[in-house]
Nucleic acid binder design. Structure first.
Lengths: 338, 338
DNA sequence: CTGTTAGCGCCTTCAA
DNA sequence: TTGAAGGCGCTAACAG
């Protein structure tokens, strides 16, 4: 009621509250953490005092005492690509349930930055999730010696024993190639993604593998952004493909935009495919044939795997996540050779 | 050299390092933090020992000792809207320069969640940035009593003294209305954004204010997503407007998609405008007339303002940020009444 | 059920 | 320069 408004409210600690409530600091701790039962009236006094003083326990002190930070770190290559925020949302949603808070660091696709972020974060978190890390294999393997538990999303290197959760890019891309073959496409261009990305290798591998079924392909180094699709479109058309397979939806979006500008009709003149199934994919015109790569679930499973590892030390590698092909309007029968 | 690989490497603390280097923990601390000069050979021993033990100082302990967390918190309404990641990138980029790390929390636009996140985070951070908070005015005003410095981005409530950095939505939207008037549009529909958003009110205010210049408008409650634009398109068309002003680019994107499906040509039959200028705006077809609302700079200035506040306690409210109209293809002369 | 006390790991005076 | 020692604020035995 008569909440005295202190002018100079220096830091109020557990002692301040204890004094005000006329109990010991242990009792305050117990009440506030609910770790142990406390007589009703004492508890009430503590709560009232804490309220009145608007006491906020110091996380640092708590962390130091319990030996955990209740924080996890996530490192992504690019927060601007809508794919990643979706994964992060999945992570945060689940992590919050265990009172975990999330530090997010954007490496801007820079391998060196990635590494330094791992180091900077390791002291502030109980665990780390790296999404599609771009660092080279040596550094990647070194992560095995990390003090904090690490889980990697969407990267698998042979001989590297880091726990990972990944989407089956190869099968999905193979399926996409199958679709194109069925539609009569024999000659395609592949706009490949950012260097260092595992997914890039997997997708490419699937395309190369489809050669044996009659899919002739030319690979062009592009990147993972709308702009890279837009700018590399004409290069991709040089080999006169009947379809362009894009590294992801953003690239496909750039391709479609440029194609329209040049008066090339999709899918009548050219088929285009994406990957990821970000929200734009279904709303673009034409809507995009792509691979639905589960983003929320990837984040959720990633967190669960990490959490398990933090608790038990066991690293049960989760089964690979399946990605589903979604056929929309951007693909059609191959244009007959004229 | 002979880095003994310890099997059971329990936690290595500053003591472990001190022992191994045969110095006091104070010396270790001094060397590693570079706070004071230490004799070369001692320093070398410390560094070697730390290296060998792959010692990582506990952030919690450091925080507790120095009374800071070197962490800031950011609360956003929706990480999926590309606008926010861009702002965050601006924040992180600058914050990193001062060795600050960023915790990001997604409130999913939920006012209650926002509030609880403020509380959860306040103990773990030195400062907080709220982006476009949706909480009601009472809760918002209460933030004034927060223990940690807070800076709000894109929200101004009269009578609430929270430091804020905002983009001048009103002027920008007014300019957009001016453009439409110039193009002969007299009757427009406005697809308004999510409830609780300050920007929504500002944009609406600008549109209403343009009434005096002859702009007749109908407001429809939509939201801030592609889907909300897509779904509300037909409702927006009921009043037979010659232009639709959309709350943001995402909504505009949904509108354009739906319009195309219905065979309505843009801009010949209908003009459409967005807000924000996310990357898609320039690549969509037609490309989008919109307001370039500086995202990176907003984040940067937001951080600088917060940092200043954390250091000095002063809250110098930064000048409002100007947003620029960008005219592209989605707007054209009003279709003559038939 | 409650209070006392010993750390958690590090920084930082204060003497030496 | 270096080392010893006292906190930082909180949790978790351990007594009572």
């Amino acid at each position: 009621m008569t909440a005295k408004v202190k002018k100079r409210d220096a830091k109020v600690t557990i002692h301040t509250v204890a004094k005000q409530a006329n109990v010991s600091i242990a009792t305050v701790s117990r009440v506030l953490s609910g770790s142990s039962t406390v007589r009703k009236d004492l508890a009430d006094r503590v709560i009232a005092a804490a309220e009145e003083l608007s006491y906020v326990p110091s996380a640092s002190a708590q962390n130091l005492a319990i030996g955990k930070t209740l924080t996890l770190g996530v490192i992504v290559p690019d927060l601007s690509n809508p794919y990643f925020p979706r994964v992060i949302k999945g992570i945060e949603k689940k992590a919050k349930e265990s009172d975990y808070t999330t530090i997010i660091a954007d490496s801007e696709g820079d391998a060196a930055a990635e590494l330094s972020m791992v180091n900077r974060l390791s002291s502030k978190v109980d665990g780390l999730i790296l999404i599609s890390p771009r660092m080279d294999k040596v550094d990647f393997k070194n992560l095995e010696n990390s003090k904090v538990p690490i889980v990697v999303l969407n990267r698998i290197d042979s001989g590297v024993g880091i726990t990972n959760v990944s989407v089956d890019n190869f099968s999905a891309m193979s399926e996409l190639c199958g679709l194109l073959l069925t539609l009569g496409h024999k000659k395609v261009s592949f706009l490949n993604g950012p260097e260092g990305s595992w997914q890039r290798e997997e997708r490419k591998r699937a395309i190369s593998n489809s050669e044996k079924y009659g899919l002739e392909s030319v690979t062009i180094e592009a990147g993972g952004t709308i702009q890279s699709g837009y700018e590399n479109f004409e290069l991709a058309m040089e080999s006169k493909p009947t379809a362009i397979i894009c590294f992801n939806d953003l690239v496909a979006y750039g391709v479609i935009t440029r194609a329209k500008e040049l008066g090339i009709r999709i899918p009548q003149d050219l088929s285009v495919t994406g990957f990821d199934d970000i929200e734009f994919a279904q709303y673009s015109s034409p809507s995009l044939t792509t691979i639905q790569s589960p983003q929320g679930p990837l984040g959720i499973i990633g967190w669960e795997t990490l959490f398990e590892k933090m608790q038990t030390g066991n690293s049960v590698t989760a089964p690979t996540i399946k990605a589903t092909m979604i056929v929309r309007e951007s693909t059609g029968p191959a244009k007959s050779q004229d």
